[in-house]
Design a protein around this nucleic acid. Structure first.
Lengths: 195, 195, 195, 195
DNA sequence: AGCTAAGCGAGACGGTACGTCTCGTCTTGAG
DNA sequence: CTCAAGACGAGACGTACCGTCTCGCTTAGCT
C-alpha cells in the first residue's frame, strides 16, 4: 500500500493487474456473474490463477475492484446550484450506469455480498461510502441554505432516492427508464421540501 | 394444479413435498443459504435427490418455493380503513420479516436470480406479482376514494415504499429498524397525498 | 407354473411375458447390454416395471430368460454318426449364433453374472447345463464306441472345444470366423483321438 | 511417456497415481468390483474425484490400470528351454492369478468391456496385446527350432491355451484347479507337436 | 556480475455441490 | 389378482468451480 512497498524481488507487473480487471469486466459483460469464474478470468487474462489470488483474496474482490475501477471512470459529480438539480443529476447519472452492462456487474457484486460478508464490507467501504460521502455534504449544505426540511437523516434520504433504482436493477420487474426516474425523483423531492 | 391432476400412476406424495420444503426452511434458518445444498435438503427431508429434482428444476426453485410458502404463512393483508394505515401495516410487516432469517433467504434468492434468469422469472411471478396484485387493488380503491393523488403508476408507488427496505436487506449498510421504517413511510406517504 | 395355475383374480397375461422378452431382445440387439435398462425394457414392452419385477427377480433374469428363449429357437442337435462330425456340427452352430446379435446377449449375461451370483447360478443351470447334458451323452457314446481316448473328463473336453469361441466373443481381439473354428476344431479333435 | 514429459505447470504427483491404484486394488480385493466406485476409490486414496478423472476417463479405466499394474508385478516370463515347459509355466502362472481375487477383477473388467467399447480397446491393448507379444515370439522361436507344427496361427494357439481358464473364471461352472490345467495343457500341447 | 527474492504461467490437487441416471420397491386406480 | 403409470429411496456417475499448492522460468534490485 505504501509507495515504497517492495524492496526486493521482481516488482509487480501492473499490466497483469489491468488485464485481470479487464478480463473480469468483459466476462461479466458477456455472460453475467456466472461467467466470471476464476478459471475463466485467469484464462481470459492470460494469467495463472495463482497470480489472481496473489492480489485479491477471492473471486468477489476481483469483481468488486473491477467495478470500482469502472465506476471511477463513469461517475462525475456536478454542482448545479440547487439541491433538486444536484440530486436529479446524480440519480440520473446512476440510472444511466445501471442501464448498461456495468449495472450487471453491480448486481453481481451485490449477489456476491450475500454469500461473502467480507465482500459486503469492502463494497460498502469502497463503493457506497465513497459515493455517499459527497452526497451527504451536499445535503448538509442544502439544509443550511434552507432548501431541505431540517432533521432528516441523510442516509434515509439517499436510500429513498437510490433504492428504487437498485430494486429494479436487481429484480428486473420493471425497466429503469426515464419516466420512472423522473416520477420517482419528483415524489421524493416533494417530500424533502421544508414546511 | 388442476383438482383432477393425475389419472394414472402413483399420486404424488404431498408429505414428501412438505418435508422437502420444511427441510429447506430449516437449513436456511440454521446455516444460511450456503447450508441448503441439494444433498443436505434431500438428506434432511429423508428423500432422494431424484425426488427433489422431479418436482423442482434446480436448487434455486426449491429455495424459492420454501420462501413463498413461508411468506404466505407470515403475511396477512389487513384492512385498516385508510390508505396510509394499510400501507403502513404492510410495509411494517415486510420489515418484520426481513429482519428475521427469512430475510437472508430472500436475499439469497435475489442473489441467485442474478445468475439464473429462470429463477428471476419465477421469483417475480410467484413472489412479487402475487404480493403486488392485492397492493395494487388497494391503491386503486384509495384513488377512487380520493385518498391518493390521481395518475400515479402503482408500480412506482410500491417501489418507493418497499425499495428502501430491500436495499438495506441487501447492502446491510444500515439496519431496518423501526425509526427507519417510520420516517421512510412518512416521507413517501406525504408525497402520495392529493393536492 | 402348473397348467391350472390361477384360481382367482385376473389371470396372467402371457402376451405380456412375450412382449417383455421381445423388448429385451430388441434392446440388447440395438444398443448392447447398456441399452437394456429396466425402464427401457418396460417402456418398450408397453408394460410397467412392476410387472417385470413380478415375474423376474432382477434385470439379469430377464436378460437371461430372453436369451434362453432365443437359444431354444436357434439350436438343434444333429446326429451325424461320428463323434468328430457331431462335435463339428455343434461348435459350428454355436459359432454361427455368437456371430449374430444373440452373441452380444450372451456376452451381456456373462457380464451380468460377474455382478450377480444368482444370475450365474441360473445361467449355468438354464443355459449351460442343458446344452452340456446332451453333449456329454454324446461323448459317452463315442467313448463306448472307441472313438474317444478313454478317461477324459467330459467337462474338460467341452471347455476346450467351446472356450475359444467364448473368449473371442468376450474379448473381441479376433473374429470368430470359419477358419478359426475349423483350425481350432482340428487341433482339439486330434488331441481327443485314442492312442 | 517421454522422459522429459512435462515442461510447464506443476508436475503430476506420482504418489497420487500410486495411491489411487492401490486404493482401487484394495477395494476390488475386499468387496469385489461393486465396491470400487469412484467415490470410494477417491475417498480411500485421500484424493478428490476430480483428480481421478483428470488421469482416467472413467471408472473402468482406473480398474483396468490397477489390474495391469498388478499383472506386471505378478507375471514373469521364464525360459525353461522347451516350448512345452515355457507354455506350461505361463499357463500355470495365469491360473494361479485367476484363482486369487485378481481373477475377479479381471472378470469385472471383461464384464465392463461388454458395455463400454473403449474399455475393451484399452484392455486389449494394455493387457492382452502386451502379454501376447512375448508369447508369440516364444512360439516363433519354437517353430524355428522345429518344436511346433509349422503354419499355426499363434493367436489361435494362445486362444486354445488360455481360453479354458478364462471360461471357468467367467462362468464358474468348474474350478480352475491343478488337474484341469494339467490335462488341458497336455491335450492342447499334444495337438501342437509337429508330425 | 552475480545473487536472491519475488512475480508469473501452467496446471495438479482436495473439497464440495451440482444435476443425471438406474436400480428395485411401493402405491394408486382401472380392469 | 393383474396391470400401466409412475413416485420414491438409495446411491453412483461424471462435471464444475473454489482456493491452495508446486513447478520452472523470468525479472528486477542489492551486494
Amino acid at each position: 500500500m505504501s509507495p515504497e512497498a517492495h524492496k526486493r524481488g521482481r516488482p509487480r507487473c501492473e499490466h497483469t493487474r489491468a488485464n485481470i480487471l479487464a478480463a473480469t469486466e468483459a466476462l461479466l459483460d458477456e455472460g453475467g456473474p456466472g461467467a466470471a469464474s476464476m478459471d475463466a478470468i485467469a484464462h481470459r487474462a492470460g494469467v495463472s490463477k495463482a497470480t489472481v489470488y496473489r492480489w485479491w483474496p477471492s473471486r468477489g474482490w476481483v469483481v468488486l475492484e473491477s467495478l470500482v475501477e469502472l465506476m471511477e471512470r463513469e461517475s462525475a459529480f456536478v454542482d448545479t446550484g440547487s439541491l433538486a438539480g444536484d440530486l436529479r443529476s446524480q440519480v440520473r447519472a446512476l440510472a444511466r450506469i445501471l442501464r448498461t452492462s456495468s449495472g450487471s456487474s453491480i448486481a453481481a457484486i451485490i449477489a456476491e455480498m450475500q454469500t461473502d460478508p467480507e465482500i459486503g464490507q469492502a463494497f460498502r467501504e469502497a463503493f457506497l461510502a465513497r459515493r455517499r460521502r459527497s452526497a451527504k455534504e451536499m445535503l448538509a449544505r442544502a439544509e443550511a441554505r434552507g432548501e431541505l426540511r431540517p432533521g432528516l437523516d441523510p442516509e434515509l434520504v439517499l436510500d429513498l432516492l437510490y433504492a428504487p433504482l437498485y430494486l429494479r436493477l436487481l429484480l428486473k420487474h420493471q425497466p429503469i427508464d426515464e419516466a420512472f426516474v423522473e416520477q420517482s425523483l419528483r415524489l421524493v423531492l416533494s417530500g424533502l421540501q421544508p414546511d
